[in-house]
Nucleic acid binder design. Structure first.
Length: 275
DNA sequence: TGCCAGGAAGCCG
DNA sequence: CGGCTTCATGGC
């Protein structure tokens, strides 16, 4: 199915550090596993993308997943016409980034894993977890074998030694604990979507293994609170090198998370597209 | 070999 | 509260 949409660039989204199961498979073409689905996407032109799905699935799943009803162009216009030179360049460079509406539990676990790891390593860990605990699936159209992201009940009962064998390091018990918190009803991820970002962060930080940065990532990418503003080592670099630690996300109240993504994507590019 | 990665917990002052 | 150390693991 071919769709036309502005501010929609596959490479930028795949390399934006928000999703870990979207991969380049050939030139301008990406595979993506989300929820229980596998799709392939191809960037035909700047605003033109082919998705290997039916119109029904597009309307039901992917239109929402890629946040295609939101006008990112409006944000780009504000930033590129502003006086902040770094943000001008960053917004122009990453104008095809969108904040995906990913599964909240997958984001919870993925960003617990992310701590003190680089992106390739995070992706490798997540694939091992899916292969071990997810459902075996075959995509009808391409014949591709893939594994879904495991459900909370499966991970809640996982053995620490088995997780440790997947090279998760000390994060194994965080994963089990967080999954149990979901199962036990200590935390209702989907209801947190209806709470404020601030409330969501407080609740998330109640889970062992989740600090301020990871909580903000889960809030932004898993709950779609686009006012979240995660600060990792790359963002610290931006804030010190370009803003003398005086950047105030409140200047972009309500959509600071989108601004953050432009900054993150751009600083990594400046520092050599390091992966 | 030491340092770094989309950090957080534990401890100390 | 803020600073320091430790925590697995892989890649360069």
């Amino acid at each position: 199915m071919r769709i036309q949409n502005k501010n929609f660039n596959l490479k930028q989204i795949a390399d934006s550090g928000q999703c870990f199961r979207m991969n380049l498979i050939s030139e301008n073409k990406y595979s993506l596993i989300a929820f229980d689905h596998y799709i392939e996407l191809e960037q035909i032109e700047e605003d033109l993308i082919d998705i290997s799905c039916s119109k029904k699935d597009y309307d039901l799943i992917w239109k929402d997943y890629f946040d295609l009803d939101y006008d990112y162009g409006r944000i780009i216009d504000v930033l590129t016409s502003g006086s902040d030179e770094f943000l001008k360049a960053a917004a122009a460079y990453g104008s095809g980034i969108r904040i995906l509406r990913q599964d909240s539990f997958e984001m919870l676990i993925s960003f617990i894993i992310s701590q003190n790891k680089n992106i390739p390593s995070i992706k490798a860990c997540i694939e091992r977890i899916c292969e071990t605990y997810g459902k075996y699936m075959v995509d009808n159209t391409s014949g591709t074998v893939y594994y879904t992201f495991p459900t909370p009940d499966i991970l809640a009962e996982a053995k620490k030694e088995d997780l440790r064998a997947l090279k998760l390091g000390y994060r194994d018990e965080y994963i089990i604990g967080a999954s149990r918190a979901v199962i036990m009803g200590d935390i209702y991820l989907d209801s947190l979507k209806n709470h404020s970002h601030e409330e969501a962060v407080i609740v998330l930080k109640g889970i062992k293994g989740i600090g301020d940065k990871v909580a903000n990532c889960i809030s932004l990418f898993g709950l779609h609170h686009i006012e979240a503003f995660p600060i990792d080592v790359w963002m610290k670099r931006v804030l010190t090198e370009y803003y003398e630690d005086k950047f105030d996300p409140m200047n972009y109240k309500g959509y600071a998370g989108i601004v953050q993504q432009y900054m993150f994507y751009y600083i990594r590019h400046i520092h050599g597209e390091s992966k």
